[in-house]
Every structure is written in structure tokens, then in C-alpha cells.
Simulated assay, not measured.
Amino acid sequence: MTAPGPARRLRGFSGAGYDKGRGLLMQAAWFTVLHVVFVKWWCPPRLRPVLLRAFGARIGERVLIRHRVRVQWPWKLTIGDDVWVGEGAWLINLEPITLAGDVCVSQEAVLCTGSHQRRSPTFEFDNGPIRLDTGSWVAARAMVLRGVTVGAGAVVGAGAVAHRDVPPGTVHTAGGGR
């Protein structure tokens, strides 16, 4: 029998230490553009990097971002040259996400920089940045969690969850293998 976890008192959540990086007006403007234009199938792929740059993202050349991609905060996003982000990917960047050059984030992959302190009764944040190094690939429906670096040329296979760093040139599969 396992011991019960801490009693949750979510009413006491403070969010201490988390900075969204922009004021409420900018957040509202981004969410409007995100949901009315950016994610739509009819929004031309060449326009998506332009929209992200307009909201503070640093985006390289020849970046392809498909429809239904969601980005939490563009001003916390850096994308290098020749990067592809597949349909339905979700970049939950409460903290910075950096995609180096020649990176592929496939369909419905999730990059999530946010988490919570599981032992905190008020469930305070436990966030960390994500970095995908040159030539790495996060395959379809894979997930990269907060604080993880996916090394150069490494692969997070379809459906896998990367909860710790993935060394350069390795393959992390859904079964946890490398």
C-alpha cells in the first residue's frame, strides 16, 4: 500500500516565479491572432513566421509551420533556419523553447515547458526551458517535457515521452529505449 500524497490546497496556488513576459493586452492580442488566423488551414504557411515575429519570436529563414500549430507565447520562442513544425503541434512555452536549425517537430507533437511541484500542497510551478539541437527530430505525437535538451541529430520517436535529456545521435522510443 502506498502512502497518500500531500493534501492539495489549490486555492493557495501563487504561481510565484512565473513571468508571462508580456502584459495582458499583448497576451489577448496574441490569443486573438492565434485562434482567428494562425491555426487556420487557410492561413498561408509563409505568413505564420511573419505573425510569430510580429509578436516577438526570433524565427530563421525557410521555416515551415503547418496549420493547427499552437504557440503559447511567441516572445519565448526561437527557431533557427530550415525548421519544420507539423500540423497540430503544440508548443507550450511558459519558459523559452529553442529549435536550432534543421529541426523537425512532427504532427501533434507537444513541447511542454511547464509542470508543477508534485510535493507542493499548492501545486506551485516547476517549469524549465526546452532545447532541440541541430538536426533533431520529435516524431508524431511525441512529447518533450520541461527542462529537456534533445541533442544534435537525436530522435524522440513517435508517441515517446522525453522527460530527461536525449543525448546527441540517439533514438528515444516509446518503450524508453535508446
Rank of each mutant, 00 (worst) to 15 (best):
L52W: 06
R9I: 05
W30N: 03
L51K: 04
A3F: 05
G5V: 02
L24T: 11
G23M: 08
K20E: 07
L24F: 12
V36Q: 13
R8A: 10
R9H: 14
K20I: 01
W41I: 06
R8V: 09
G12I: 01
R22Y: 03
G17I: 07
W42K: 00
V33D: 01
H35R: 14
P49Q: 10
C43A: 13
Q27I: 12
V33R: 02
D19P: 04
L24K: 12
M1S: 15
T2E: 07
D19Q: 07
V39P: 00
L34N: 11
A54I: 06
G23T: 03
F13Q: 06
R48E: 06
A16F: 05
W30Q: 02
V37G: 03
G21N: 02
M1P: 09
L10R: 13
A29G: 08
L10W: 14
A3D: 12
D19N: 12
G23Y: 07
P45C: 05
R22Q: 14
R9Y: 04
F38T: 03
P4L: 10
F31G: 00
M26Q: 14
P44W: 09
A54R: 15
R8Q: 06
F31S: 08
V36W: 11
V36A: 15
A7R: 14
L25K: 02
G23V: 04
A28Q: 13
P6H: 07
R53K: 13
P49I: 09
L25V: 11
W30I: 02
R8E: 06
G23P: 02
R11A: 15
A29L: 15
W41R: 14
A54L: 15
Y18N: 08
A3T: 13
G21C: 01
Q27N: 07
F38L: 08
A3S: 12
Q27H: 10
L52T: 07
V39W: 00
F31C: 00
P4C: 05
V39Q: 13
L10D: 15
A16D: 12
L47A: 15
G23F: 04
F31L: 12
G15F: 12
R8T: 02
P49C: 09
Y18W: 15
T32C: 12
D19R: 09
R48H: 10
P45S: 11
R48D: 07
F13D: 01
L25Y: 00
L25C: 00
R46H: 10
W42A: 01
R11P: 00
V33G: 00
K20G: 09
F31Y: 14
F55T: 08
V37Y: 12
A3N: 11
G5W: 03
L52H: 08
Q27S: 07
W42N: 03
A29N: 05
G17T: 08
C43G: 03
G5T: 06
P49D: 10
F13N: 04
K20Q: 05
A7C: 04
R9A: 13
K40A: 05
G15Q: 13
T2P: 14
V36T: 15
A3R: 11
W42M: 06
V39K: 11
L24Y: 04
A16P: 01
L47W: 15
A16L: 09
G5I: 01
T32N: 03
A28N: 11
V33Y: 01
R48L: 07
P6F: 03
H35P: 00
L10Q: 07
K40D: 02
V50S: 03
G17W: 08
S14D: 11
L52R: 05
R53G: 02
A28W: 02
T2Q: 10
